[in-house]
Amino acid sequence: MTDTQAVTLNAVALYGLALLLAAAFAAQLLLHELPCPLCLLQRILFALLAIGPILNIRFGPRPSHYALSLLTAVLGASVSTRQVLLHILPGDAGYGSALLGYHYYTWALIGFIAAIVLLAAILLFDRQFDHRAAPGTSPGKFAQGAVWLVVGLTALNVLSTLLECGFAACADNPIVYELLKQAS
């Protein structure tokens, strides 16, 4: 795999993360289910996963950039495992609605484990680290679009979380947007 192909793959990964963040937003808005603190932390870690690919697109693929994403994915898997264990006992209905049979945190655990496996797999291709094909050239529109999409969705999450939690600690089982409640 050349460095150019690796950059394209990183852009595809960013679109995947954007899709995931958008799906979480859609569930929040369409089902009127507000994310709990651990759910928010999992969203945060999915957004943090994007830093590695953005650095790869801008500066070229480096093992250290993949390491950032690996560290994030391991922490994300830990957080989602904790939430799965909180609801694992028989009779527990879980938190929120299930999507295709699994709750959001179970999908998050699958996503973080998939990220760890994919990151390990892409690290197998040493040729991407040999050199940058054309140093100084700006990334193409496909990669630029991926970066701005993820930045935009993260900015929307800033707004959504501010509305949900206000300026205090977030509720364990949120049912209303605290900031809107205070305003009305």
């Binding site: 603190p37 999450n157 206000g166």
Partner: peptide
Amino acid sequence: MEFTALFLAIAIAMLAAW
């Protein structure tokens, strides 16, 4: 509040990376 700050910090880190 801490979650809003974390999302904001990530958005800033993304812009710094870009």
